[in-house]
Simulated assay, not measured.
Amino acid sequence: MAPPERMRRSDPEADWRRVATVSAATVITVVLMIVVVEQIAEQAVLVTSLAASTFLLYYQPLHRMNRFVPVVGGHLIAAGAGFLADEVIPSSTLALAVAITVTVTTLASLRIIHPPAVSTSVVFAYRPHDASALLTFSLTLAVVVALAAVYLLLRHVIAPRRWAHLFGLDEHRP
């Protein structure tokens, strides 16, 4: 018995093009984020947690965990939890544990599921930052969301048929 149409593998060449396109977009975005943040705030480590989100946004932009609220809300909640834990708890190990626990519990209770956000709490809890780090991180997050919006626009609105082969969507949609 053959698998359902939506479960069949697409053309390997289309898969390769999709992987290459997503990989290139992710690398370019992450490198640009790091360069810009390093120039502005000299804290490139702030955007490391956004690398995974960037990949997910490019790879599966329509997945529910990659929507605006899970991505932005998840990272902002995690950044706040990590920042506050670092400010309130003197032990960095305990602050890290508390930040992760608060982040996971809050995200789960709000049904905001975006796993890369947990690493944001680690970045903010483990390394001391000032308040400007939250602003820098928020602006960087806004850039990621804007790039994802451009990607969605290209993929689904402007020329979906023209771009479909690049993303392996000739047979099915994500």
Rank of each mutant, 00 (worst) to 15 (best):
L46V: 12
V47M: 11
T48Y: 07
A51V: 11
Y59R: 09
Y59N: 15
L62M: 11
H63F: 15
H63M: 13
R64F: 10
M65Y: 13
V69S: 09
P70V: 01
V71I: 09
V72L: 12
V72Y: 02
A78M: 03
G80N: 04
G82W: 01
G82S: 10
G82P: 02
F83N: 00
L84E: 08
I89E: 04
I89S: 03
T93N: 06
A95R: 00
A95L: 06
A97D: 10
A99P: 11
T103A: 04
T103V: 03
V104I: 11
L107V: 12
S109A: 09
L110V: 10
L110I: 11
I113Y: 07
H114P: 02
H114T: 02
T120G: 06
V122I: 15
V123S: 05
F124E: 01
H129F: 15
H129I: 14
D130N: 14
S132V: 07
S132W: 08
L135Q: 14
L135C: 08
F137P: 00
L139K: 06
L141F: 12
V144F: 07
V144W: 11
V145P: 12
A148W: 09
A149G: 11
V150I: 15
L154A: 10
H156Y: 13
V157G: 09
R161W: 12
R161H: 14
W163R: 12
W163C: 06
A164V: 10
A164Y: 13
